[in-house]
Design a protein around this nucleic acid. Sequence first.
DNA 1: AAAAGTCATCGAAGCGCTTCGACGCTTCGT
DNA 2: ACGAAGCGTCGAAGCGCTTCGATGACTTTT
Lengths: 333, 333
Amino acid sequence: MDVARAAEVSSSTVSYVLSGKRPISKETAERVQRAIRDLQYRPNAGARALASARSNVIALVVPLRAGQNVPVVMEFVTAVVTKARAADHDVLLLTQDEGVAGLRRVSASALADALIVMDVQADDPRLTTLRQLEAPCVLIGLPDRPTGLACVDLDFAAAGALAVEHLADLGHRAVGLVGQPAAVYERKTSYAPRLISGLRDAATHRGVDVAVQQCESTFEGLQACVAQLLAEQPETTALVVHNEAVLPALTTVLLEHRRRVPASMSVVAICPDDMAATHAVSFTNIAIPAEDLGSIAVDMVMGQLEAGAPAETRLLAPVLTVRASTGAPRKPR
Amino acid sequence: MDVARAAEVSSSTVSYVLSGKRPISKETAERVQRAIRDLQYRPNAGARALASARSNVIALVVPLRAGQNVPVVMEFVTAVVTKARAADHDVLLLTQDEGVAGLRRVSASALADALIVMDVQADDPRLTTLRQLEAPCVLIGLPDRPTGLACVDLDFAAAGALAVEHLADLGHRAVGLVGQPAAVYERKTSYAPRLISGLRDAATHRGVDVAVQQCESTFEGLQACVAQLLAEQPETTALVVHNEAVLPALTTVLLEHRRRVPASMSVVAICPDDMAATHAVSFTNIAIPAEDLGSIAVDMVMGQLEAGAPAETRLLAPVLTVRASTGAPRKPR
DNA sequence: AAAAGTCATCGAAGCGCTTCGACGCTTCGT
DNA sequence: ACGAAGCGTCGAAGCGCTTCGATGACTTTT
């Protein structure tokens, strides 16, 4: 290695300067650093991975084109990449459709040191494989049986409850849920049912009636959903919307039913904060903290990698921000 | 290597079976394949990269959170990943914000064999660096001086022209452009001005008046944009919308001006096909062929990598699909 | 029948790093 | 004042592959 020659040290010394794994005198270290800078030296990633059995790469498995939560996915991804870079790791992108084989491939070939898997289903078929892998692995989402796997997610049950609490406090007695597309429930993506059960539990406690309706991510889907909801429970005065994609169309569709937000219909959205704020009506929302989740996922990965941290589950407490879309129902009884 | 032992051959033979770089007898090859399967053997990526000077990884540089074209970006990304996997390569994700340093790092450390860079600006500061890199590199987008760099993009000038042609054919004489957010123009992201100039040129040819207005990706932004457009050119009977994010709100905002789509206002959207079709009114659109672009980018990368193909520029011809949002102006003179 | 190819395979030399043990030197405790 | 302990550095042995030249066993050519 010519950096070593330029700095008049052995190549092992250069390595130790770079890794800090052994003490090096200040003068030597500086000499080496200068040589590195002068020669624009970058260690060869392959050689490094081979010798150290560490690639400094994290594999991130993203859903291909599931539902239309694309902006949320992208937020996750950038958060993960940014955080990973800060920890001196790179991110390899895998899509869902390589399935279990892709996970095995990446882990067994030592392409990546660890995995982060998004969009985990309640009984995800990848779970057993993931448990068998050498590489540590963090799930974003919460399967039914997370034993042995690290998970991080928003506490959707608490989020559902929080939404109901807020509305009940305002005086609402009948709430509708505009849910996710059917595909999401069929896929048994655990967050959707978790939200519903949290919502129902809280509603029971507070004596609030609840109607639940899935909702396709199109204009017509939303029309159908709202129509159904109001037919089923006409006294509905508030909506919880767990579908980012239909938010833009919501006020329009409600207007078709002579409902104004928030005067004759309150709305709590479950969506990222920035999305809540950029509509005709800014929506009171419970944040989907994509950035935090991504960042925490990387932290957990690094913890397992460096410190052999155990595989714990973290559910983030929901945060509700009051904006312009919720108020007291028109005729409080 | 124990696959070699199991198949009773030398490790070089295993390598040749895997790479096909030398003839191997059918029997031996089968023996080796079986051993590989039985032992679930996966070559170590680091060792392979080191020995062959090829990592089989493509670096993809995505814009961090530029504008709200997020779904389009995601389409690119999945297209690139899918296509790359088909060519036995993986994709490493870099964000814009690592800048030039990131490009150099990835290339010099041989982490990736090639780069694909999205969201290239007219006078992108990364250009000179990219030209200096060892690694071949493909831009998605079209800088002012693409010399020496491979580029692929939609022909936005032709797209602008095509939109005007379509509207002029229907009888429209005054067209407004709902443009991108100011940030995009400030960044000099070449596609936006290219669309405008193509649109203006065609308009001049066809004797159509054009008003151009940038548009922030919020409800209020759209309101302001449309108001401005109609104030400036009240005889406007058609809109070209080059901003996916405001499409959902468009019909609502136009209604505030007593304009219905397409009866009293025709609309051509520049957006991905799936986006055009899932609104209250399905929009006549010129497709942004994200999937094709991503796929072609990978093809070009592989061409440069395998065959030493030259760095050419490819501009894809725009395709307009007529849907429900365009028609003849109300009072053709 | 000898020379010249082919074909399928092997052995060994790296690829550019990290890491372990060793070594010489200084400092400390007693 | 002498052994123990610590510090800073070096040399060499890999890490697990690919690849090049070599080698036999055959086949074809002359």
